[in-house]
């Protein structure tokens, strides 16, 4: 019993470190799912089946799924923003560039570039 407890604690510690030190979110999700599974196993070994069941469905299924969907969404946003940056900048495109739901939150006569990352080389960020 005590050996099993120490072993699962060591696995949980290693898996937690792996989650943090995996820097790419797409790969990190796999580690996080494994980490959730190991936490569930730890709860089970420490006589907490209720908590284990809860952790199993949350940590190994629900949480990684939502992270994956968020990654997919940010990736498609990135693609859209890259695409917009390649377009020639015309004055009449300024208003509708971010879609109707985003125009409300930004001033209509904005002069800012669409994003910080991967700017055209002619306009470094510090120059503004």
């Amino acid at each position: 019993m005590i050996g099993m407890q120490l072993a699962i604690l060591a696995i949980v510690a290693a898996a937690g470190g792996a989650v943090v030190f995996t820097r790419k979110p797409g790969e990190q999700v796999v580690g996080a799912s494994f980490f959730g599974l190991m936490l569930a196993l730890m709860f089970f070994i420490f006589q907490a089946p209720d908590v284990a069941l809860s952790q199993l469905v949350i940590g190994a299924v629900a949480l990684p799924l939502m992270v994956l969907l968020a990654i997919a969404k940010t990736r498609s946003t990135q693609m859209r923003q890259d695409h917009e940056r390649e377009q020639p900048r015309k004055p009449e495109r300024e208003h509708g560039r971010h879609g109707p739901d985003e125009g409300r939150f930004s001033p209509p006569d904005e002069e800012r570039p669409p994003a910080d990352v991967r700017q055209p080389p002619g306009r470094p960020r510090e120059a503004r």
Partner: peptide
């Protein structure tokens, strides 16, 4: 997104601590 998953690890630390505090040697599930 990486930051959100790091927060999950921080929260897991409380689970490990609480599990150890609640456990009794030789105890069975309640």
């Amino acid at each position: 997104i990486h930051l959100c998953l790091c927060l999950v690890v921080v929260q897991a630390s409380t689970y490990v601590l609480l599990t150890a505090v609640g456990y009794r040697p030789g105890g069975i599930a309640p």
